[in-house]
Amino acid sequence: MSQKPLPTPEQARYQQLIKEMEPPARYTANALWAFFSGGLVCVIGQFFIDLYAAILHLPPVEASNPAVATMIMLGAILTAFGVFDRLARYAGAGLAVPVTGFANSMVSAALEYKQEGFIQGIGSKIFILSGSVITYGVVTAFFVGLIHALLKR
């Protein structure tokens, strides 16, 4: 194993300098944008839950499934038309944290790798960003499920 060289005094001083000079993110503006856009996305989601509960005669818990699919479709359409990335410059986490962000990560990857063909492009690259969410979600759920199954005995 290569040893990690200690930073020289010059390097340490430089790191300190760039930390001092780093322009701050627009914390307040970003936070407000994320809160209001995220809230709005969830309100739209709630509207679809109510809509599907009414027209499909479903209990609200089950109506959230088609509502999620609808929100994913909206995220996909916005991405396909090149609008999502522009909105997300402002909305930030407000669009990324709801399922719209999940849709965006998959649709943007599929679009981007279209040129590499159906198999090595779209097919294998579609999960390039969302893969880690699915992987760690499944790993967590597996152990949670295992613990539950063991405790039940």
């Binding site: 322009p23 993110a25 990335d85 997300a88 410059r89 943007s108 679009l111």
Partner: peptide, 13 residues
């Protein structure tokens, strides 16, 4: 970085 249509917020630097 990311696919160009991915909604990523650029850092100020």
């Amino acid at each position: 970085r990311y696919p160009t249509e991915y909604g990523n917020q650029r850092r100020p630097y």
